[in-house]
């Protein structure tokens, strides 16, 4: 069986339309995955050939060549392929719940968080506008993963991707964590500081936490907890992980006041409560049927302090971000090969 297709010689604009008609595009222009470009990407892949699992909903097992083809289409450089592969392997862990996260009506997208030396080597953005546009590595790695899930896995909107509204993060959702006063997320999860690691989670886009007024770490945590105490989040009744991305200025204030990752996590678990009056009568019933009971005067966010993961990213300014998840997922971290 060959995976090579002989297609007409097309101009870039013609290719854009042709690939879109084939159903291979996320709506943005792609680069033709010509054999020479795919071969060049494969030649730069230094690790052992990965063992991929079937990608739902189509249950197709990708090949390294088809992953590379999608990476080319997304605009990846050859050096980006190991990061794409590590992210894809992470989504294949059973705990990630790839099938549920791709087929759900929830707007979750595969979030990719890069830690370790590859951040600088491949120019990932961990600073200003790290969730936004303007950095090739962030843009193309997240996009490549989404294209693989679409083109090999069949997660096509309207058919097998049943998201009610989707989100912009479904185009690409990739950023790197910054150096900070706290241990990196990868180190917190048992990796060495000199290892490059990719962490994935089926996640909503970042929810901003604007706090210019607080002067202490405790005050900042009050604001963050208020943002997390959101009535309509999956984390309330499906539970599961969530991620706090502290902006560097908030992180510095917290570190100055003696907070650690562990104490931040514990304090936010205490503070983040959704008052009962902010939950509708119907949702009280649904939460109860899901086994979720209020604690004292409010509902908690997830099952405990340990479900909150914490890292630092961003540039100057007094903003942080809370990233809720699909709920029925886990943050999965994978070392980047090579």
């Amino acid at each position: 069986m060959t995976d090579v297709l002989d297609v007409p010689d097309l101009s870039p604009a013609e290719w854009f339309g042709w690939a879109e008609e084939k159903g291979w595009s996320d709506g943005l222009p792609t680069i033709p995955p010509t054999e020479d470009l795919v071969d060049a990407m494969l030649a730069a892949f230094g690790g052992d050939p990965p063992e991929f699992a079937p990608i739902p909903p189509a249950r197709m097992i990708p090949t390294l060549r088809s992953v590379a083809a999608n990476a080319v289409m997304a605009g990846c450089r050859p050096a980006d392929l190991p990061v794409v592969v590590a992210a894809l392997l992470g989504t294949m862990a059973p705990a990630y719940n790839l099938h549920g996260s791709l087929a759900t009506t929830h707007p979750c997208a595969p979030m990719v968080l890069v830690s370790g030396p590859l951040r600088e080597r491949l120019d990932f953005n961990s600073g200003g506008n790290c969730f936004g546009q303007g950095t090739r590595a962030n843009a193309v790695v997240g996009r490549a993963l989404s294209l693989v899930l679409r083109n090999v896995g069949g997660a096509i909107p309207g058919t097998m991707d049943r998201s009610t509204q989707g989100s912009p993060a479904k185009y690409t959702f990739c950023f790197a964590e910054a150096d900070s006063p706290f241990p990196s997320l990868a180190v917190q999860r048992g990796f060495a500081a000199d290892e490059s690691v990719v962490s994935v989670m089926a996640a909503e886009p970042p929810h901003n936490v604007n706090d210019h007024g607080s002067r202490t770490g405790e005050e900042i945590l009050v604001t963050i907890a208020g943002t997390m105490a959101e009535s309509g989040s999956n984390n309330v009744y499906v539970r599961g992980p969530h991620l706090l991305v502290l902006g560097p200025e908030h992180a510095d204030t917290l570190a100055r006041d003696g907070w650690t990752v562990e104490t931040i996590r514990e304090r936010l678990w205490e503070l983040a409560r959704i008052p009962l009056e902010r939950i509708s009568e119907g949702n009280h019933v649904q939460f109860d049927e899901s086994g979720i009971k209020p604690e004292q005067d409010g509902y908690t966010i997830s099952d405990g302090a340990g479900q909150l993961h914490i890292c630092v990213a961003g540039g100057p300014g007094k903003h942080s971000a809370w990233i809720p998840s699909f709920g029925a997922t886990e943050l999965v971290s994978t070392r980047v090969a090579g």
Partner: peptide, 14 residues
């Protein structure tokens, strides 16, 4: 031109 099929893979289930 010749391209690598981005949808190619192996059936996952026997």
């Amino acid at each position: 031109m010749k391209i690598v099929d981005p949808t190619s893979g192996l059936p996952g289930d026997a």
